[in-house]
Design a protein around this nucleic acid. Structure first.
Length: 205
DNA sequence: TGCCAGGCCCTCTTTAGGGCCTT
């Protein structure tokens, strides 16, 4: 796998908790390299259970849409090959992490790479945003988007676009020439009030 | 029977509780 690649990943699921039996119904991934999307992966997944009505209302995905889709074991094997060891990025990454780890364990696979959370980065880069939902941030930061929310590939693309906007915001706010993915990753762990400025100062020293 | 997520973050905090965010 080429260096300096990030994989932006998003799941649609039957609910909020794999521990309560919720399963994946769609996965979307975009690979970002040199600030360009260089590859995409999308698949429906047959969850083996009914898609709840509120999920269909939210995502537009119904049980009939996923009934003929491949089983999760097949999709997870494909996804594992597609991702390789590329670092993952997701909005509210703990959600994707719990489902990915749970689904991987079902088929004897293990996640090798870290997850970076754009929600945590956004709370530090855009502390004054109305809220930090993906849809709100995409509009707040003027991220180009398809207008189709709560679909895996669209949300993954929006998350990548938000990442690029946040990078640009950091560059402009602190008059930097550039910032690395590693620097962006560090932002998620600094204190919300003043931590970003301290990180820039430490990096410049 | 009744309940049902979990991590991050803030504050009227730290011996806790509640809002946010994901589907």
């Amino acid at each position: 796998m080429a260096k300096n690649v990030l994989a932006f990943i998003d799941f649609e699921t039957t609910g909020l908790s794999p521990d309560n039996g919720d399963r994946l119904i769609e996965v979307g991934v975009v690979l970002l390299q040199a600030q360009q999307i260089v590859d995409r992966y999308q698949s429906f997944i047959n969850p083996g259970i009914a898609v709840p009505g509120f999920v269909t209302q939210l995502t537009g995905i119904s049980s009939s849409d996923v009934r003929s889709a491949p089983e999760s074991s097949q999709v997870l094997q494909e996804l594992h090959r597609f991702l390789g060891g590329v670092p993952l990025v997701a909005h509210n990454a703990s959600f994707e992490q719990r489902f990915l780890d749970a689904e991987y364990s079902r088929v004897g696979l293990q996640r090798q790479q870290p997850l970076i959370c754009t929600l945590r980065v956004a709370r530090r880069v855009y502390p004054n945003a109305p809220n930090h939902k993906l849809g709100t941030l995409v509009n707040y930061a003027s991220v180009p988007h398809s207008g189709r929310f709560h679909r895996a590939l669209d949300d993954a693309e929006m998350t990548a676009g938000l990442w690029l906007r946040m990078r640009q915001r950091v560059i402009e706010n602190f008059s930097l020439s550039s910032v690395s993915d590693e620097f962006m990753q560090q932002i998620q762990s600094v204190p919300i009030n003043g931590g970003l400025a301290s990180l820039v100062s430490r990096s410049a020293a």
